[in-house]
Nucleic acid binder design. Sequence first.
DNA 1: CAGTCAGTTCAATTTGTCTTGAACATGATG
DNA 2: CATCATGTTCAAGACAAATTGAACTGACTG
Lengths: 172, 172
Amino acid sequence: MIEVPKSEMRPAPDSALSGFQRECINLFVHGAQILSIPRSIGEIYGLLYATAEPLPMEAIMERLGISKGSVSQGLRWLREVGAVRATYVKGDRRDHYEAETELRKLAGGFLREQIEPHLGNGGDYLSRLALEADRVHPAESQFAAERITKLKRWHRFTVRALPLFLRIVGRI
Amino acid sequence: MIEVPKSEMRPAPDSALSGFQRECINLFVHGAQILSIPRSIGEIYGLLYATAEPLPMEAIMERLGISKGSVSQGLRWLREVGAVRATYVKGDRRDHYEAETELRKLAGGFLREQIEPHLGNGGDYLSRLALEADRVHPAESQFAAERITKLKRWHRFTVRALPLFLRIVGRI
DNA sequence: CAGTCAGTTCAATTTGTCTTGAACATGATG
DNA sequence: CATCATGTTCAAGACAAATTGAACTGACTG
């Protein structure tokens, strides 16, 4: 069976993209990698960041050459995190999306949605650990107690540092 | 076909683990998830964190029930990041590992190895983007310029915030 | 209503990452 | 040296996450 070269399998999706947009998308795809966020989300945000008018889903699909499902899911995530907002466009019942560009809101949403819930669980793990502290072999009990104390300190620190951090980011 | 329950597929690897150790490992596996670090690395660090004596690779393998390759690679990562150090144990030519427990070193190493390099690249992406700014359609040039300015501000902020952040973490 | 349009959902597939295990160093030991 | 002990590397396989596409929901329209 003959393999079709990948580059020909989709019609060049970025034909409609300006160089500025392409580089923007690049940049945000790279950013997404750092945060372990799906590539498609980086692409979508990058495109919106680089586009002056709000775009409907369809436009995103065809300019990026990704599926409707991906765009729908990606936009949901971006909405939840507050990285994107839907704006009304008169005479068009489709939703149109534009990028939220305030670092405060971006970082804030990301931390609130992605990190805070985990930190909450972190507390649960810690308390379950603390329960074991009593059951530990006497010879090790001091060691265990120290380690637990240290963990509690870390936890308290992160929980407190988050809002502080957000305040600093807010001043940009 | 009858499915073998996953819990029986490996001989219970944690037979040699205390409750304290198990909960510690749990906690760090969870932490690893947050940072998108491989589970096995969380397990290894968790075990070392919960163990008073330095452990050789072999002990880690059998207590966690993971392969030699995984442990070797996991330890390398942890060493590079400074989360673990090899200590000499007299009369034993094997390397013995113990956990580094200072948040300053952990966070510092992680940021230095995992984040900083990315930020460096970030600068490259940004400058390539800036090049496109001139080529952009006149009608959009002001929009593009604004967005680029904003990105540069973000970038400058993160680059400067990193050492500051580390200084704060250092005081814990 | 039947028919379109906009958007969501989710099972199946694709893609990418982690883990394994066997082969390969390296170096100590008799 | 041959052998054993310790540790690394890497291709192949197992696993997990992202993406697709088709089926679906609901809402508007003539």
